[in-house]
Write a protein that binds this DNA or RNA. Structure first.
Lengths: 162, 162
DNA sequence: AAAAATATTGGCATGTCCTGCCAATATGGG
DNA sequence: CCCATATTGGCAGGACATGCCAATATTTTT
């Protein structure tokens, strides 16, 4: 798989900030003409270094101002229960993000809801899952930095084209 | 400020998943013709319910497979020190996200780097900040759900047009 | 170092899509 | 029931993306 040169990195960085830039605008920023620019972007898409394009919404303005970070610990870790838990979580639209993590807890989740009432409804729902042991909520008070772009300085593509 | 009807919500939901859908494609999915569709989207942008459009990159394929959640506690909380900390964090490209949170710690950060070596460099840098007291790292082992779309069922726009 | 093979570039033609306008329709208030 | 307002659907003009080509740059081979 081809390595990323300076221009590829530059394109990725620009598109992370604004996916609506035209080939022409990108071209003048990276010092190339529009057509090779478009072709490089298409290649980055085919290599799936660019996963997708998405619209980012404003939680505050949408009245979804409550973000909560939730640490979850399971009581039993049999494969079937773990999978059931993860499937349940993946299906809950309030769950924006969920990772298994090292440390005292098994999972760290990010939840977004309109208010505490909505959040409580979700926690209740979560606690009906029998394999859930501990639920530890940490409320986000203020976002210092949100959805930052990836730092591409150390990025180099893996040749995993699966 | 106008309330969101069923179609607005539908458009936002679709654009959260794929910002490249054309007005025509959106139109047939929401059951409208392209022009009112485009106009509604423009209004959503002007109201800044849509914040921006961005390309989402694949961390794994870019060789940036290490995600770490870091809890930070400050030792002193004078305004100047808090601001200095937040400014430093906002300037660090490895920091993808940073929130002040309730609970035993002051901040929760998400860090992305290529490997443990890169992560260590960042932690060292963080710990040079004099107001930093505790740094608690929790490594992401696997993403169960990443960058989920917002759940718009309870969304209603605030009339904050600042 | 020269020559060939390969990859990349820049420009152009075509087709698609977005934008701004219009008349027609639907919605809501008096 | 009628009028005022908002929203819709379609069309014309312009911007943009896509696919192609010859020209240039880069790399490999001999």
């Amino acid at each position: 798989m081809k390595k990323l040169d300076r221009i590829d990195r530059h394109l990725l960085a620009l598109l992370q900030q604004d996916a609506r830039l035209t080939s022409h605008q990108l071209a003048e920023r990276v010092g190339l003409s529009p057509s090779p620019c478009a072709r490089r972007i298409r290649r980055l898409e085919q290599q799936r270094l660019i996963q997708r394009y998405r619209a980012e919404l404003d939680r505050e303005r949408l009245g979804l101002g409550l973000t909560v970070f939730v640490h979850v610990k399971l009581s039993r870790h049999q494969d079937a229960l773990v999978e059931a838990f993860e499937a349940a979580v993946a299906d809950m639209p309030e769950v924006i993000e969920c990772h298994t993590v090292s440390g005292a807890f098994d999972y760290l989740l990010q939840i977004v809801s309109a208010d505490l009432k909505g959040y409580e409804r979700w926690v209740r729902q979560l606690q009906t899952l029998p394999m859930v042991n501990t639920v530890d909520s940490s409320f986000a008070i203020r976002a210092v930095k949100r959805a930052g772009a990836l730092d591409l300085r150390d990025a180099r593509p893996t040749d995993d084209d699966s």
